[in-house]
Design a protein around this nucleic acid. Structure first.
Lengths: 135, 135
DNA sequence: GACATATACTACTGTAAGGTTATACAATAA
DNA sequence: TTATTGTATAACCTTACAGTAGTATATGTC
């Protein structure tokens, strides 16, 4: 370990106080945050969210829009509802779901932006390697 | 790949046009986004990120700060590095990791805010039920 | 009442991923 | 060189969960 120019020389004991709340979160809160991210970590659920972005839809419409199986959609909707991402409203035989917390799209946009930057940087790196290609 | 870096054109027939880019993302992009969220969906990795928030640390320091096993930390660091969340820098025998993309903390803050609102709403609901309690 | 439709639930399978132990590799020191 | 320390990888076990098929529970219609 040891003498390093980089290391702030601080083990667990006295971490420098930081402006970011996130840093000081207790493990249980970290779990909550992780669990929320887990809800968004499935492309099928993102598909459903995308479908609902246009407006409330019932399960059958979601099934058609996403191409997923009925049981599968039902399960994912339950997970999304429990996470507070979507809300449920029964209308006769049908059950309509809608986005309950639009901030999830902010999250997705942020990630998209970051990913696109990464992709761009990567393609630039590749482009810079073109020099070494055989003519 | 630029303004719609990841999404060239909408897939299925004619979805209603929407101001949000995210809605029109093709499945493969949704997978990318989902995979990124998956990286953040593990409390152990959030712990590591929290540790690195204070500044660059080598693996041993991260192990001490988080209480995780060595092999485990190494594996998580690899995942974080591949996702572009942290970057790696060797210094002698030690390898220092640092947060490479601070926007992940923005994501976490957003989620924290949302969760706290949810918790508050829930506690208000519970409080309103107090009326029915036996005296 | 019977029947059809819409949604939810249960049981099952396959796969992905976390954690652990042991081992391999890399950089320095002796 | 060999030894030691720090980090990465491999192999393994276990758990969690996505997807599916079948079934159950409404709700509405005849």
């Amino acid at each position: 370990m040891a003498s390093s120019p980089l290391a702030p020389s601080s083990p667990s004991a006295t971490l420098p106080t930081n402006d970011c709340r996130f840093m000081q979160l207790p493990p249980e809160t970290l779990h909550l945050v992780a669990d929320f991210f887990k809800v968004l970590s499935e492309s099928s659920r993102l598909q459903i969210m995308c479908a609902l972005k246009a407006g409330p839809q019932n399960v059958s419409e979601i099934i058609e829009a996403t191409g997923l199986g009925q049981a599968n959609v039902s399960k994912h909707l339950k997970i999304l509802a429990q996470a507070g991402v979507v809300s449920r409203q029964q209308q006769g035989v049908c059950v309509y779901y809608r986005i309950a917390n639009a901030f999830v799209f902010d999250l997705c946009e942020l990630v998209c932006d970051s990913l696109s930057v990464q992709v761009q940087q990567q393609s630039e790196k590749i482009a810079s390697l073109e020099v070494f290609r055989q003519p």
